[in-house]
Simulated assay, not measured.
Amino acid sequence: MSAEANPQLALRPMLPGEAPLLAEIFRASIMGLTQDEYEEEQQEAWAAAANDEAAFAKTLADHTTIVATMGGAPVGFGSLEADGKVGFLYVHPAAVERGVGTLLADALEKIAGGRGAETLSVDASDSAYDFFSKRGYAAQQRNSVQCGEEWLSNTTMKKTLPGPETVQ
């Protein structure tokens, strides 16, 4: 018996040409998981950020982007910006509550820590606030962000990462 919670769950770097698929996960996550906190017009404006697939692909390529797979199929992705900030963390609605978000967040925190970051920040949507709060992220400030004609609220949150182990 394996000690893994879900042996079919894995991580890998984003592959070339994969941005259109990740754009679909991005849109599905927004439209399927944020309806309790955001109006439909807000969701549509937010999801439209992936409509320019070339720009979306460039943003993902400019970040350190990792993909979570379940049974080999992509079900979520996360990215780390150069300045120690989570750029994206999205999970397809069909894969929610299966450890995908936790796996991605753990990996992004380890990558940031491995690069010497002492803290990691995220602009968490109202839908993701509790997820990040339970992981030890503390609210720093509320933000209003314009997406097209709509305004969306989020919260900048920050977590102190564990320091490098010192050898005695």
Rank of each mutant, 00 (worst) to 15 (best):
P164R: 13
L152E: 03
M157G: 03
A48W: 08
D123S: 14
E37Y: 13
E118A: 14
A117Y: 15
A105E: 10
N51R: 12
A112P: 05
G17A: 04
P16V: 02
I66K: 06
L21V: 12
M31E: 14
E44N: 08
D83Q: 12
L120V: 12
I66S: 02
M157K: 07
D106M: 07
M14K: 05
I25F: 10
A82Q: 11
N6Q: 06
K85L: 07
T102D: 01
A23Q: 09
A3L: 15
L21Q: 15
W151G: 00
A28E: 15
S2V: 00
P162H: 05
P20R: 10
A5S: 12
A105L: 15
A112M: 10
A23N: 11
E149R: 09
E44L: 14
L33A: 13
L152Q: 04
G113A: 14
A28Q: 14
E53D: 07
E4H: 07
A54K: 15
Y38F: 11
A54H: 08
A107P: 05
T166I: 00
G84V: 11
V67Y: 06
F132D: 02
A19I: 09
Q140I: 13
T69P: 06
D52R: 10
R115M: 09
E37D: 15
H92R: 03
T166F: 00
Q146K: 08
E41A: 15
V100L: 09
Q146W: 01
Y129F: 15
L9D: 02
D123T: 08
Q146Y: 03
A48Q: 11
G136R: 08
P16H: 07
Q141W: 00
A47H: 13
Q8F: 09
G136S: 05
Q140M: 10
E44D: 07
E39L: 15
F26C: 02
F77E: 06
Q146C: 00
T160F: 00
E109V: 12
A68K: 04
E4W: 05
R12G: 11
A49V: 11
V167Y: 12
G136E: 03
W46M: 02
G114N: 06
G32S: 08
P164M: 02
K158I: 14
P13C: 00
P7I: 04
E118G: 15
L120N: 04
A124C: 04
V91W: 09
V86K: 04
L108T: 06
V67W: 10
L33E: 13
G101W: 00
A49L: 14
E44P: 01
L108N: 04
V145G: 05
V167G: 11
A28N: 15
D123R: 14
G84W: 10
D36V: 01
G32E: 13
L33P: 01
T65V: 04
P20C: 08
T69Q: 03
T156Q: 08
A73G: 01
Q42A: 10
N51G: 09
V91H: 05
K110M: 06
N6A: 14
L104R: 04
E165K: 10
C147V: 01
A73Q: 14
T160C: 00
G76W: 04
W46A: 04
P20M: 07
A47W: 14
V91G: 07
A19T: 03
G78Y: 05
A45S: 13
L80M: 06
T155Y: 08
E24V: 09
K58S: 09
A48Y: 12
K158N: 02
S29N: 13
D52H: 12
F88H: 15
T59E: 10
G116A: 04
D62Y: 02
G17Q: 04
A112D: 05
